[in-house]
Design a protein around this nucleic acid. Structure first.
Length: 463
DNA sequence: CCCCCTTTGAAGGTA
DNA sequence: TACCTTCAAAGGGGG
């Protein structure tokens, strides 16, 4: 775009204030198309303003910057006669139709569109309060004037000492804090006046910038989240689990259920290896993508539907059949082996019943999702050489089966293959109290298919 | 073709 | 602060 032609035309046709607006609009447009804009020329480049605030070597790391604030107004006036005759108002001089300070202090960033340079100076890591400084009369040493800046989005910092124009080698500075920027607001007593603008989410310029960034987001390559410890564990263990269970076409979901159980069975020390690895991955990720946050990926992946947890016996049974060998079985196995221990160690029937009731409660917690009043849970017991005989039957407690302790030893082998036999017995159970994660394996209303392995001959069901 | 499933942990948002 | 939502991996299943 030929901005000089536009400016020339504007000079001829427009009034002074309009010219200024046009120039600002042009610069605005240029910057809007610049993904990484240059430091802000607070006046148009064509006007050859002597010493715009420019970034200089920062005294801090990163974005921090000391910004000189100086203008040789004589030169400014000579080269820009139209702009060199500002209006006097309330002790301040203003260019064009610039907003009054009273407005500024209340609403930073509400200037007429295009009049001000939409640029946010990247500054950071400055712990102290912002100070806007202006020089005393030359050639006296520069004495910074501390100007209080409000802790909010509307900070305005303007100083107006009655000082003569300063030679260029005396450079007052202002150090901006993170999120703050400078905005030229006019001229007073031959000094350029700047406003310090703090963070302002409603700032039109910020909004525009955010919009630009959003647009850029879409074109930027997708950066994935760094994996957490569990993800690293899954990645490492998946193949071995698939090999271990040796089930053709076992789903990743099923494998993940097993790995979830495995993960929880690891000791802190064993898990620590993966946490350390995840920490390192995260560090490298932050190094490679310093500006990336998890938020960047939000909505990029289809939102997962939260499945209703309505109790559906048929569907649940099918689901349970599919999941045989995963969490149902894992939970049952754990419960079964615990029950075996109880039976082995208990000296009386009462003791067995008491211990087993808590076991079943635990099992319910694992298997039963959100709380229908009655649920059926299939309990698969491992193979027993001896006959299975119910030894008690009472309300609110599970059926307890007497099983030869020796028969509990072959648990690992039956883990992926044992299935229940028909004709389960039932007792009443209180609904579980613990909320389940979504779509956990539902309870089973009917016996599973006949055993595919001779290992399993015993089953019990709890209602 | 693309989402779902399934797990745990991390991060960001909301009340 | 507690709770909720989303996304990391994986690959078969299904619409």
């Amino acid at each position: 775009m030929d901005f000089s032609a536009e400016i020339e035309r504007a000079i001829e046709e427009m009034e002074r204030g309009k010219l200024l607006s046009t120039v600002w609009a042009a610069i605005d447009e240029i910057l809007a198309d610049t993904s990484n804009p240059p430091p802000p020329p607070l006046v148009p480049a064509e006007l050859e303003f002597n010493t715009h605030p420019q970034p200089v070597e920062s005294q801090t790391e990163g974005y921090g910057a000391w910004i000189p604030m100086m203008a040789d107004l004589h030169m400014f006036e000579q080269q820009n006669p139209l702009m060199a005759a500002p209006t006097m108002y309330d002790g301040l001089l203003y260019q064009g139709d610039i907003v009054q300070p009273g407005h500024l202090s209340g609403q930073a960033g509400v200037y007429s569109a295009g009049q001000y340079l939409p640029y946010q100076w990247p500054v950071a890591d400055v712990p102290t309060a912002t100070a806007v400084s202006h020089p005393a009369a030359a050639p006296q040493p520069y004495l910074p004037h501390q100007w209080p800046v409000a802790d909010g989005p509307t900070a305005t910092a303007v100083s107006h000492p009655a000082a003569a124009p300063q030679p260029c080698n005396i450079v007052p500075v202002v150090k901006l804090s993170e999120g703050q920027s400078l905005r030229w607001i006019g001229v007073q007593n031959r000094e350029m006046l700047y406003e310090v603008i703090a963070k302002d989410p409603l700032n039109t310029f910020n909004s525009r910038k955010r919009k630009r960034e959003t647009q850029q987001d879409d074109s930027r390559p997708y950066v994935k989240k760094p994996p957490n410890a569990f993800m690293l564990f899954i990645k490492e263990q998946r193949l071995s689990v698939e090999a271990e269970f040796n089930i053709k076409g076992i789903t990743s979901a099923a494998v993940n259920r097993i790995l979830g159980q495995k993960w929880k069975s690891l000791t802190k020390e064993e898990q620590a290896k993966y946490f350390d690895k995840a920490k390192e991955e995260k560090r490298l990720h932050a190094q490679q993508h310093p500006k990336w946050t998890t938020r960047d990926n939000y909505g990029k992946k289809r939102k997962r539907k939260v499945k209703a947890s309505a109790f559906n016996p048929e569907e649940d049974t099918q689901q349970a059949k599919k999941l045989c060998g995963t969490s149902v079985q894992t939970a049952v196995m754990e419960s079964s082996s615990s029950l075996a221990e109880v039976m082995e160690s208990s000296s009386s029937l009462a003791e067995v019943m008491e211990s087993s009731s808590s076991l079943v409660e635990d099992l319910q917690t694992v298997l039963v999702p959100e709380a229908p009043q009655t649920q059926t849970v299939l309990v698969q017991l491992p193979h027993s050489q001896t006959a299975v005989t119910p030894v008690c039957d009472m309300r609110h407690l599970p059926q307890v089966y007497k099983v030869s302790p020796a028969s509990w030893l072959d648990l690992p082998e039956t883990a992926s293959t044992s299935l229940a036999s028909p004709a389960p017995l039932t007792v009443t159970q209180s609904p579980p109290t613990q909320r389940m994660s979504e779509d956990r394996c539902h309870p089973v209303m009917e016996p599973l298919e006949p055993p595919s392995s001779p290992h399993c001959t015993a089953s019990a069901a709890l209602l």
